[in-house]
Amino acid sequence: MQQYILRRLIGAVFVIFLTGTFMFFMLRLLPGDPAAASLGLDAGSISPEALEARNAELGLDQPAYQQYANWLWDTVRLDLGSPFSKRGVTVWYEIGRSLPYSIELSILIMIVGFSVAIPIGLLSAIYQDRWVDYVLRTLAILALAAPVFWTAAIATLAVLQWELFTIDVIAQPHFWEDPGAAFTWYLVPMFAGGFAGTAATMRLLRSQMLEVLRQDYVRTARAKGLRESLVITRHALRNALVPVLTVMGVTLATIIGSQVILENMFNIPGIGNKIISAFFGRDYPVVQALVLLIAVFVVVTNFVVDILYGIIDPRIRFS
């Protein structure tokens, strides 16, 4: 077990290192001049001297291997540098600003996703191969098929047309600052994102339920005359939920960096939105740091879930 944990840990660190290296060299392949972009100008409209000075200031005048070595050494010491596009702040400050928004949105999306997926998965397993099952599964696949930018746009239109509530995309409040405004701001994206992610969870729960409902202990529970509702909730659902809950952690980790489009549409200054705008502005340190941050999230949650799985279920042997 200890050996397994150690090996997984080394693997996890290696994956994070690979991700950082990959992003570093991928960014250097991009067309466009980051020094000019950091000044908000085209490369042609700046004097060569000024461009050279800016390059030296950003450390871009050094050869690539030197830049890479610097980046690696800085990152190991958790020094993520400063954004090219902003003076006087560090990349850590940018992360601290955008991460809370992404976490808020992701948790809301997860709440919506799971509270829709669990009853739907349950019903569709109980009424397997009957019309309820077909309708619910089709709806889940439909929600998966509809692009979020389209459903979110139409939902926004409905809100505006019927004057249900106002959506303020300028103020950007956190929940702890102004719960009401934050809630109306997050409402459309959280439902659009939540519905889109329902299908995966629903399918997992459905197949788990179908398997559990065929187990001997469920037949025993029925045979001793237990009410069907109790059989379902107490005996079947509890066991079927275990794998569903274990994917929750991994789901949250992947959702955090994946809400690019919703963040973009609703002007939520989260991680995904930052990465895209930093890409367009060729702001290397910001892109590198944020992608690395997401990778760390994903790798660490995967690692923790795998280890926990082994502790919870002793039948899983590590090799």
Binding site: L30, S258, V260, G272
Partner: peptide, 22 residues
């Protein structure tokens, strides 16, 4: 396997977006 772990650690849309920028 580790290379694949790396590709999966980056959100799909961001990965494709990054690649298409090249």
């Amino acid at each position: 396997q580790r290379l694949i772990d790396m590709l999966q650690a980056i959100p799909f849309l961001i990965l494709v977006f990054a690649l298409t920028q090249i």
